[in-house]
Design a protein around this nucleic acid. Structure first.
Lengths: 182, 182, 182, 182
DNA sequence: TATGAATGAGTTTTCATTCAT
DNA sequence: GATGAATGAAAACTCATTCAT
């Protein structure tokens, strides 16, 4: 039932937008009464948090795995494969990407995005520390830059659908990353 | 008077946040009655749009000028100087950056950001067309990538204050851009 | 089971106050489901009535006995002993006194208080009819005045704890009563 | 308008009872919209407080004057006249007496009643200190007992309309008081 | 033109009560 | 009988908008 409500919440969010997401509408979409909703969630806030949480649980692991699963590859291969998969995942979950970056207030999403970025940045930072001797910038700085750059360009690509191919984006991301690390 | 209302709107937005920005509060901050507000704006929507417009008018020209004023420079110098100035502008207008990217709903900001991005992208695209013969990617693709990359990393840097210097960011942005164009 | 519910109701009333006494909370305190509560009581009203009834059953007899058991004593002794016991009983049941006079709506308590007052007044009236020839006022008027006076002052003393001794109150009540009857 | 709302609140309280007094009903009775009510009062609580305050302002001074205006009389005359007037006032404001002692939750009324009782008790205590040398009980104890006794019996008389005359009650109150002070 | 009191639909939330299991 | 999830009407309160002055 919690799941039903969360699904309904997600749906209302997608269909009506954040500002038109009311507890009554969510209850309606879940096919329950407003009172029932409050047997599973203490307030509206908690319903929205659950929707965001569910998204994170569903997608964040996939996103982290994009890097995690390839930490044994050499940088270039890791990057190409990761960016490729990343785009796959985001393209397959366009609606959620839109929800997180376009629909929900930043404050509600920030904790999850921050956590994911930190998680991936840590991975990348560690990877770089091992793969590369010291350099112009610290591994954590590199990670900060690369993670945000790749993330943002992929998200933008997925949502704004610019007039160049998916392959082009991956190629250019790899090139940018390689240039940065060279 | 329109200006007074817009200023008040901006102030309320900054001090109270989007969700606590009511027409009454804006009227109050403008020292007028709610009824008067509706003689200058048809509805709340329009007030917020005007606030965003005013922001764009105030900052967007500066931002565009960052590139415009240097179209005669060679790429590397143009980039370094532009990124430097861009960071200056954003750092000097942190509050507005926060408003546009963290406080206001994306839908309200998107038209302006898109317009600015298109404007700068066009400039950059044209510049690249002239500066560089054909290449891996079209000038407009390059522009799309570079503009979004630089913009996003600078905005993030300004708002999240990561533990590396402003100079480092500029250096790395130049390096990334140069690598992309090479 | 009815008893369990009534006990729970009393407990919730004491701990949470009348306005925060919900049927769900009572059921919870009774360790049963809200549905079960409705197998023993038709509605919330009835539960509260039962709580008040139980209180009356528990205390009212003691209170009536204060007089009943002493109808063979001469007036002054009867009064002194009765008031003394009355105070004992009320002091020993302060929580219930508070419930009846401060927590519950008057309408819910009135029937029981009225009944008790009538019962005691009748006793006292009868006693006075026998003990005393005719006088300034009828026995029932005397009873009305004395019962309410003593009851109210004792209740107030118990709940408000004024800065004089219990003994003083008893002395003064006896004196007042004696003065009235003289 | 505040007055209109307070009047409406009082009326709803009288006609529908405390538990059926809702902000919407009060607004309705005042002939205004629920929103308007909230331009004059921050919440329901405040409306009810204002109703009680208005009552106090209207009646409490009269009640206190009952004693204040006669502090130069000898005790017996003071008492007789005061009790007489007190009954007049309470009989003339039966509806308000009912509201304060029967309808509203004790917690809402207590501050006002306590204040009034303290005010009158202080007066009486001071009067007794002057009129009478030391005695069985302190003036403040006498005041505590007399004020509560008289108040309660008068209130009960007014609300319950027992089968004896108003004059009888006054006579007996005087007698009781005199007996206490003798 | 400016006002600001008035509006009332819409929001979140509660809770006495029901009923399928 | 017992359950407890589900109900839904009703409550307090908000706020964009209007309109008589």
């Amino acid at each position: 039932m919690v799941e039903r409500i969360v699904t309904a919440g997600r749906q209302v969010l997608v269909e009506h937008g954040y500002e038109r997401t009311t507890t009554n509408r969510v209850a309606d979409a879940a096919g329950i009464s407003p009172g029932s909703l409050y047997q599973y969630f203490p307030n509206k806030e908690a319903v929205l948090a659950a929707v965001v949480d569910a998204y994170s649980a569903e997608i964040a692991d996939q996103l982290a795995a994009v890097v995690t699963d390839r930490l044994d590859l050499p940088p270039l291969e890791l990057m190409r494969a990761s960016y490729d998969d990343l785009l796959d995942i985001l393209l397959a979950n366009r609606e959620y990407v839109r929800l997180m970056t376009r629909e929900l207030p930043h404050a509600r999403v920030a904790p999850h995005v921050d956590q994911l970025e930190r998680r991936v940045s840590d991975l990348v930072g560690t990877y770089l520390s091992a793969a590369r001797p010291t350099d112009r910038v610290s591994p954590s700085t590199s990670a900060w830059i690369l993670v945000r750059m790749v993330e943002h360009l992929c998200v933008q690509y997925v949502l704004d659908d610019p007039p160049f191919s998916r392959q082009t984006l991956v190629d250019e991301l790899v090139r940018l990353s390689a240039g940065h690390l060279a």
